[in-house]
Amino acid sequence: MTIALLIEEMLIDLGHKVTALAMRLPQGLDLARDSEIDFAILDVNLDGRMSFPIADVLSARGVPFIFATGYGAAGVDAAYGHHIVMKKPFEMRDLADAINIAAAA
């Protein structure tokens, strides 16, 4: 959660508005389905459960997203290999670049 707060602060500094934080798969799925968002950052491991179902919901809605995980690219299923994977820890500059690339794709 500390990391989520850090990312949140980075996002605010970058001029974005953070709609919500979710630390668990069900809450994340609810947010992905129902909230008004134009971008998402997904940790791969949400307290022991993989966040790929959230990725599926976002893809279906056409909401761009990136992964951020301590596992690095190896932690992401091959099926999602075309999405950007940020390896924790990362800098604000990297986050800004990743968001720009993913949002433009």
């Binding site: 500390t2 990391i3 707060l5 850090l6 602060e9 491991n45 995980t69 301590g70 596992y71 690095g72 190896a74 932690g75 390896k87 924790k88 820890p89």
Partner: peptide, 21 residues
């Protein structure tokens, strides 16, 4: 080893977050 690596990375990210905050 993978899990350990993950935890180390997570901890570093947390330290980064704590330092920043």
């Amino acid at each position: 080893v993978n899990e350990l690596n993950h935890r180390v990375k997570n901890n570093l990210a947390m330290i980064q977050a704590i330092a920043s905050q």
